[in-house]
């Protein structure tokens, strides 16, 4: 499999490390339901047949964390974005939502 690193270009998957589901977000530790939320964050995962968003780390390359959109049925990768950009968007939208 080849992953198109937005910084380095297309590389073999031997350069990357896989972490897992990018749709889960680290919860607020001060929230009243933090215990349940962290349990779900650490352990609960959907088993999707289709496109998923995953965190990959360009460990042998530029050390960027990436959000890779991959179809689990075909391994086809339709999108790769820097994780930091998505995380910043997430934070910005959270802070602008009333």
């Amino acid at each position: 499999m080849r992953i198109n690193c937005p910084f380095c270009g297309e590389r073999g998957n031997d350069e990357f490390s896989y972490l897992g589901d990018a749709s889960v977000v680290r919860p607020d530790a001060s929230a009243p339901d933090a215990a349940d939320a962290f349990y779900a964050f650490a352990y609960e995962r959907r088993n999707v047949a289709g496109p998923t968003q995953e965190l990959w780390y360009h460990s042998a390359g530029c050390h960027a964390w990436l959000v890779v959109t991959r179809d689990t049925r075909t391994h086809e990768i339709s999108d790769v974005k820097p994780a930091q950009d998505i995380a910043l968007e997430r934070q910005n939208s959270a802070s602008t939502t009333p």
Binding site: C8, R11, E15, A60, G61, C62
Partner: peptide, 8 residues
């Protein structure tokens, strides 16, 4: 010339 790659 001038291209860079970080790899293994």
């Amino acid at each position: 010339p001038g291209d860079v790659a970080i790899t293994h």
